[in-house]
């Protein structure tokens, strides 16, 4: 019999992986281009949360921002305070990476939305099956 905490952590990773695969299924199978874009945004968000969850720690007990703990007059922390801080703090590196990933995902989605509007102006629909039919009937290559 495992502990409840271990089961809960397995549940975190499994529910995030289910979200990732559900959104990838949406990107692959839904016919509408805008629905594909929305599911792509959810895919990016779930991947970001997965990255931050890897830096989260069991029993992370609300670390102070500075180990010295005083905001007005800063003093260098001694080794005991640093040890307490490092034993309770979460990992900051995935958080810094995720800030960049959010902004780059925004830029990619704006580009894809502009492409979807151009697609609608050219073909009159956003359904990929209808677009394929029109390409075959019209003889437009690729």
């Amino acid at each position: 019999m495992m502990e409840a905490a271990t089961l809960l952590w397995i549940y975190f990773y499994s529910v995030l992986l289910v979200t990732v695969f559900l959104s990838l299924y949406g990107v692959y199978r839904r016919p509408n281009v805008l629905k594909k874009i929305i599911m792509l945004s959810i895919f990016g968000d779930a991947a970001n949360v997965l990255a931050v969850l890897m830096g989260f720690r069991k029993n992370a007990a609300s670390p102070p921002v500075y180990p010295g703990q005083t905001y007005t007059e800063w003093s260098a922390p001694n080794s005991t305070q640093l040890q307490q801080f490092a034993s309770a703090a979460v990992d900051p590196v995935p958080q810094v990476l995720v800030v960049t990933a959010i902004v780059i995902g925004l830029a990619v989605l704006i580009f894809l939305s502009a492409a979807a509007i151009l697609l609608y102006r050219h073909y009159g629909t956003l359904d990929v099956r209808l677009i394929r039919q029109k390409i075959i009937e019209g003889g437009v290559e690729e």
Partner: peptide
């Protein structure tokens, strides 16, 4: 998950 600096960017986006 103690990452409230991401909330500033993520809610806006």
């Amino acid at each position: 998950m103690y990452a409230p600096d991401l909330v500033l960017a993520y809610v806006a986006v």
